Computed example of a mutant assay.
Amino acid sequence: MEPDTKPLSAAGEVARPDQSTYIVEPTAKHSHTIILLHGLSSNGQKFGQELLETGKTSAGKTLPDLLPGARFIFPTAKRRRSSAFGRKKLTQWFDIARLPDPSYRKETQLQGLTESAVEIRKLLRQEIEVAGVPPTNIILGGLSQGCAMSLSVLLTLEYPLGGYFGMCGYLPFQQDIEDAINKEHGSDDGMDDDNPFAASDQDDQPEDPALRALNFERDLLCINTPQDTTAEQQQTASSTPIFLGHGDADEKKPYALGEDAARTMRAAGYSVEWKLYPGLGHWYKVPDEIDDIVQFIRNCAGWEMVMP
């Protein structure tokens, strides 16, 4: 049986591919959810349909075949003016000034990162609070800029997910996050009062690298922590297992960016599996990478699958 699909949009609007969240409903009782974010200038429906139809394992199975109880959610980013493409409007989670170098004029990314993080966190809450899916039965991830956006969201979460997988992506503000994690506790050496991305020099800066990463990312994306919450009471998503795959022939996002993201997430206390695919450009490798993702979901996220 083919899974049911439905595009969702704001009430009263006609759902178009570039304005909708594309959802593939489970063919069995809903027990798990996978939320995946598309890349620059794509949309949820285009990315979702292609991944779920052509992203087959070496046994010829798709993810819905193997996970009949999973709902697949592919949101679509807002249309934003692109600095990298002469201010042309594109669907993008955040603006970026130079595609192969996310650190160039990184301040252009902040507004979109902040706005998109609110939307993705809202999707997660809906699955947990409305659909009743426990966080351990949710996987987050994405492709390219969708990988970058979802990694940023993962760092802000106060609870772990079942897993995360990203393809040919990177981590926005990667070096700033790593600096915040590695900053000596209680030290203000090297601080720059004029740098809005510099790590805080407050005496209550936590020792836990996962908390340091969470505090930095929440400050960066303007996500508030309750005032009466102490550092010891704060929770993170650092027990979420991560899989990151990248092609060594990727010209749009050189694989060194993916390696840097893996290193920084490990420094923040996350368990990260990093896989480089020879000859692969800016996409995912079929069936090799799909096989690896399936193995990751079974062995690291611990989800049961309907295997042939």
Rank of each mutant, 00 (worst) to 15 (best):
L113N: 07
K89I: 01
P100F: 00
L63D: 07
P64A: 07
A84H: 01
F85H: 14
S83P: 06
T91A: 15
I96Y: 06
K56W: 14
R87D: 15
G60H: 08
Q109N: 04
L66I: 12
G60R: 13
P75M: 07
F74W: 06
Q92F: 05
I96F: 04
T62W: 01
A70W: 10
L99P: 06
K56N: 12
R98L: 14
S103L: 00
K88C: 05
D65Q: 10
P68Y: 14
Q109C: 11
L66D: 11
W93V: 00
Q109Y: 03
D95M: 10
D101N: 03
S82R: 03
A70C: 15
P102Y: 09
R105L: 12
K106T: 10
Q92N: 09
R105C: 02
A70P: 03
S82N: 06
L63K: 08
A70V: 12
E107S: 14
K89M: 08
F72N: 01
L66A: 10
L113P: 02
D65R: 04
G60S: 09
R71M: 13
P64M: 06
K56S: 09
W93T: 05
R98W: 05
A70M: 01
R105D: 03
L113R: 01
K56T: 15
D101T: 07
T76L: 04
K56H: 07
S58Y: 10
R98M: 11
L113A: 10
T76D: 01
W93K: 03
K61F: 12
L90H: 12
P64V: 07
K78Y: 08
L67R: 02
R87K: 11
S82Y: 04
G112F: 07
A77W: 05
I96P: 05
T91Y: 02
R87G: 09
K88Y: 15
R98Y: 15
K78G: 02
D65H: 15
L99D: 02
A97K: 12
L90K: 13
P100D: 03
P64Q: 04
P102E: 00
Q111T: 12
K56G: 01
G69Q: 12
W93E: 04
D95C: 02
T91F: 02
A59I: 04
R71S: 13
R105W: 12
F72D: 14
G112H: 02
G112T: 02
T76N: 00
L110P: 00
G86I: 00
F85S: 11
L113M: 14
G112Q: 02
T57D: 10
D65L: 09
L110R: 12
D95I: 03
Y104K: 06
L67M: 14
G60I: 09
D95E: 06
K61Q: 13
P75G: 05
R87W: 13
G69H: 08
K61W: 12
Y104T: 05
L110D: 01
F85K: 07
R79K: 15
R80G: 09
P100W: 00
T91G: 13
G69N: 14
I73D: 03
L90D: 03
R87A: 14
L66R: 14
T57E: 08
A97H: 10
P100I: 02
S103D: 15
G69E: 15
D65F: 01
S103V: 00
Y104I: 06
A70H: 03
Q109M: 15
P64F: 07
R71Y: 09
L90G: 01
K89F: 07
S103Y: 01
L110T: 04
L110W: 08
A59T: 15
T108E: 13
G112Y: 07
A59P: 00
Q111D: 14
R98A: 08
K61M: 15
